[in-house]
């Protein structure tokens, strides 16, 4: 009996690619970045109250933003960043004590006059300003108080400044 067929069978098996190599899955990959820029946190400080001083029951007092009696805020944020300022302003200090005609100035240094930018404060309106190179921005506020028979006493109302990037 001849043995040639088994030899050919072995040769055929040797020519077959390994099952593992033929079935290996192809793959590919790609990359992207996660990115972000972190800015310094914001801080707002009330430095000085808007002070109309002593008045009579019927009187009008005007305090300009450049006055030593003007209200003042300090904003601290990332140097050179743009911030949005939103004021909440009282309309009166009490009965017969109306407050209006608000005036304002901003500056990157503590100076309401030289280099300061004027603005018309309005409750709820967003004012955008650029923070100075030292990370500071000052806000100065003035207004007009009109007393129309107000009762004697001390009166005050809050002025709120919200700041956001």
């Amino acid at each position: 009996m001849t043995r040639r067929p088994p030899s050919r069978l072995l040769l055929a098996l040797a020519l077959l690619p390994g099952a593992g190599a033929a079935a290996r899955a192809q793959d590919a990959s790609g990359a992207a970045l996660a990115t972000g820029v972190l800015q310094a946190s914001l801080a707002v400080s009330g430095l000085r109250s808007l002070d109309f001083g002593r008045i009579t029951p019927t009187m009008t007092v005007v305090v300009p933003p450049t006055s030593a009696a003007a209200g003042q805020f300090l904003v601290q944020a990332a140097a050179g960043s743009s911030v949005g300022l939103v004021l909440t302003l009282p309309t009166s200090l009490g009965t017969d004590l109306a407050v209006g005609a608000w005036t304002g100035r901003t500056n990157v240094v503590n100076d309401a006059t030289t280099g300061a930018l004027a603005f018309a404060p309005a409750s709820g309106a967003t004012l955008r300003r650029t923070v100075g190179s030292t990370g500071t921005l000052y806000v100065f506020l003035g207004a007009t108080l009109t007393a129309t028979g107000a009762a004697p006493g001390s009166y005050s109302r809050p002025i709120v400044l919200n700041v956001a990037y």
Partner: peptide, 14 residues
């Protein structure tokens, strides 16, 4: 404060 990054990789396999 500053710029932050990281790498995300997606691998796709048949």
């Amino acid at each position: 404060p500053g710029t932050y990054t990281a790498t995300i990789t997606l691998t796709l396999a048949y």
